[in-house]
Design a protein around this nucleic acid. Structure first.
Lengths: 208, 208
DNA sequence: GTCTATATAGTGATAGAC
DNA sequence: GTCTATCACTATATAGAC
């Protein structure tokens, strides 16, 4: 717990805005609501960030960057490919458990707003450093297939499948929690359970 | 192509509204915008549906029902469990290809609005007919495991994994299309490619 | 840096004419 | 059934006092 009350206003506004954007999305969140939760006037929100769109973009970029860093970190492993997959999936689950609303937040805005995709493309996809992440993974996959230790599957498919299985777990969390009326403890168990099963499924599914 | 211009207004409004809700979500869509795209006044939208929320709910329920019917249909198969899985995954991909925005539309509203989850719970989860769908599947899984033809995995996990892999394909479609600048033909190929790989991964991953 | 006040525009919804 | 007109609100954003 940060000692919230003593933080500078600029930061408090960003933190509250992030929470609200995460929960409700961009369109359903107003600067008035942000101000009310912070305990300041709506004018102050605009004093620091000028526009709502601008405030959103700072948060959005920061979060995408954080997510990509997790992916980047997962590729640094020197272990065997199987152990590398294990620890990557484990890392994704742990990172998302810390920040369960992140994937939906990013997806929502990317899916429902073409401008956001353009923005992301300019800021990340075109940057060579991020293209490198994929190249690195692809090389490793090909080497493993050459050695006959991995099924002949496109590296892009491996990434897609792992992303699907991890991300969807957290996207569906509110439904699991709410529709099936589960407690926090049950949710924690559910995540751990899925982590184990996703790992098992991926490893067995990628055997040659 | 329906001869759109000749349809009754009530229906035209619903179709346009659906398109817009699918693309932008509830909060980002106004009844004014709906009216403009239909080519009528905003008052008429409210004449037929009274409130925006009400218009939304009709569309939402209809779509959830359609989705659940696809799932229900997939369970009717008499074939071997492996063939049943194959045809179920195939059916999901085909249904979603007809309606690629459906999963995101449903998820978005369920994730970002607790009221919608309450509403869904009342209308579906509590209905015995929908609980039956799961029971049916669970029985079949257990029988297959008894016979030693299927890995010892919870039936709930099997559903979650298949849902993750199919749904995420379509959620990520706008990004695939836009971020990687793909043509319609390439998108079609991508879907077919994922359908094959998802089928392969699930079948191999569920072998005992 | 924080406030009050306000300009401007858009929202959902309704009343009433035709 | 469709329109015009309008209400009461809320939104984002800015100007100006302190």
């Amino acid at each position: 717990m940060n000692n919230y009350e003593n933080e500078p206003m600029e930061l408090r506004i960003r933190e509250v805005a992030q929470q609200l954007f995460f929960r409700q999305g961009y369109a359903a969140t107003s600067t008035t609501q942000i101000a009310k939760e912070v305990g300041c006037t709506q004018a102050l929100v605009h004093y620091y960030y000028r526009t709502k769109e601008n405030l959103f973009r700072q948060i959005f970029l920061e979060q995408v960057e954080a997510a990509l860093n997790v992916v980047g970190r997962s590729l640094a492993s020197e272990a065997s490919f199987e152990d590398f997959l294990r620890s990557a999936i484990s890392l994704y689950f742990d990172a998302l458990q810390q920040n369960p609303r992140l994937p939906f937040f990013v997806l929502e805005e990317l899916v429902s707003n073409p401008e956001r995709r353009k923005y992301l493309r300019k800021n990340f996809v075109q940057k060579p450093s991020y293209a490198m992440i994929y190249m690195q993974f692809d090389a490793r996959v090909k080497a493993e297939q050459q050695a006959g230790r991995l099924a002949k599957v496109d590296s892009f498919d491996i990434m897609m499948s792992i992303a699907s299985l991890t991300v969807f777990t957290f996207i569906s969390l509110p439904m699991y929690q709410d529709l099936l009326a589960q407690t926090d403890e049950q949710v924690k168990q559910f995540i751990a359970h899925r982590k184990a099963e996703v790992t098992r499924l991926v490893l067995q599914g990628l055997r040659p």
